[in-house]
């Protein structure tokens, strides 16, 4: 995997009139993982989007080396297309087939995305993210809607990703089982 690094310095985030958190800094090198914990509404998703470069921080800078992949509540798959063809669109952009077998999606390729359950959609989105081959994974509530088997499978996938030299940032209020993962409590930076 290509070299990667993710660092943020002195980040502050404002949503509407409210300053959610401030003076947040983090640094991740190749192979490291970080969980961002905290109750709902603390700005976990906003921080993930700031790290992805999709949201401008109110203050501070983000530096990324290597492409970032984002997994959030939006699967970015065409609702009316069969799953196989919806993922094939991303395959043609990423030039890498999404790993359907590994996520237990092989039987669902002919099912239109709109008929998939929450957990199946999540797994499809994970497959899309893996296909992107990005060294930095930004996961926003990756375990939402997943059953117990899928949770351990996701944890395994993230562990493999970090083992291979990737970076993972996991924003979740749930426990995420991953060896060597640091935890950052977002409420410590709240105002």
């Amino acid at each position: 995997m290509e070299a990667c690094r993710l660092s943020a310095k002195d980040i502050a985030c404002r949503r509407g009139e409210r300053l959610l958190f401030a003076s947040l800094s983090l640094k991740l090198e190749s192979g490291e993982a970080l969980q961002i914990a905290g109750p709902n509404g603390m700005g976990k998703s906003s921080l993930i989007r700031i790290l992805a470069g999709l949201l401008r921080p109110f203050n501070g800078t983000v530096e990324r080396e290597g492409m970032a992949a984002l997994l959030d509540e939006k699967p970015a798959l065409d609702e009316y297309l069969p799953l196989g063809r919806a993922l094939a669109f991303w395959d043609s952009i990423d030039r890498e087939p999404a790993p359907l077998d590994r996520l237990g999606l092989a039987d669902l390729v002919d099912v239109p995305v709109r008929y998939l359950s929450t957990g199946q959609r999540k797994r499809a989105a994970i497959a899309r993210m893996i296909g992107q081959q990005a060294p930095i994974w930004l996961l926003d509530e990756p375990l939402n809607g997943l059953d117990r088997d899928a949770v351990s499978m996701t944890e395994e996938l993230v562990a493999d990703h970090c083992q291979a030299g990737g970076i993972a940032v996991i924003a979740s209020h749930q426990a995420f089982d991953l060896q060597g993962m640091r935890t950052m409590k977002l409420e410590e930076f709240a105002l």
Partner: peptide, 14 residues
């Protein structure tokens, strides 16, 4: 936009 396609394109540099 609602389904997150534009976010994913932006991450890929499109």
């Amino acid at each position: 936009v609602q389904q997150g396609f534009f976010d994913q394109w932006a991450l890929r540099g499109i």
